[in-house]
């Protein structure tokens, strides 16, 4: 019996009755928005429930939304995968732009260790409970978080090229 999207929704809503979930089917993956303070409980439930069995953490990454209100400036996106039923799921949670922090998943998934370090490295998100939260790809002496949207890709003082003509600005719709 294949695991149905509705079944996932029902089970989650029934178990966490005090939480408002935002379900959305985007292309082929069910996407769920959950509040940040419940993230570890929900992911642990998704992993250990005998029917849901999302036992594999495929991916974890951060997203910066500087145009959102302060409470929703960063998003952490988890992709989980149930290999038994071959079902993917996307969990998205928004956190504040000021001192962004979130509970670490390292005790649930050892593979989250480096992925959280990478997210910290690029977005400066503090994962509470991470055993060794330090930079991983950038050098230790760096002070900024380069994947934040305000961090320029190139030296802003360059005069030898006009980015407007090359489709290289952030939001030139």
């Amino acid at each position: 019996m294949a695991l149905e999207t509705a079944q996932i929704q029902d089970k989650l809503s029934a178990t966490f009755s005090d939480v408002t979930f935002l379900f959305k089917l985007e292309k082929d993956i069910l996407s769920i928005e959950v509040p940040a303070d419940k993230i570890t409980a929900i992911i642990l439930y998704l992993k250990n429930d005998s029917e849901l069995r999302f036992h594999f953490l495929t991916d974890l990454c951060g997203v910066h939304y500087p145009d959102n209100e302060l409470e929703r400036q960063f998003a952490i996106v988890y992709h989980m995968h149930n290999w038994y039923e071959n079902k993917r799921i996307r969990i998205k949670t928004y956190i504040s732009g000021e001192n962004p922090s979130l509970k670490s998943l390292t005790t649930i998934f050892p593979s989250a260790n480096w992925m959280e370090r990478e997210t910290y490295d690029f977005y400066g998100i503090d994962f509470i409970g991470h055993p060794q939260l330090k930079r991983i790809l950038n050098m230790d002496e760096m002070v900024s978080f380069p994947m934040r949207k305000e961090f320029p890709l190139e030296d802003g003082g360059r005069t030898d090229k006009d980015d407007r003509f090359f489709g290289r600005t952030q939001s030139n719709k």
Partner: peptide, 13 residues
């Protein structure tokens, strides 16, 4: 994507 000519975010797994 946000509808612009570049990805809003692209993460490589």
């Amino acid at each position: 994507t946000d509808g612009s000519r570049t990805p809003y975010r692209l993460h490589f797994r």
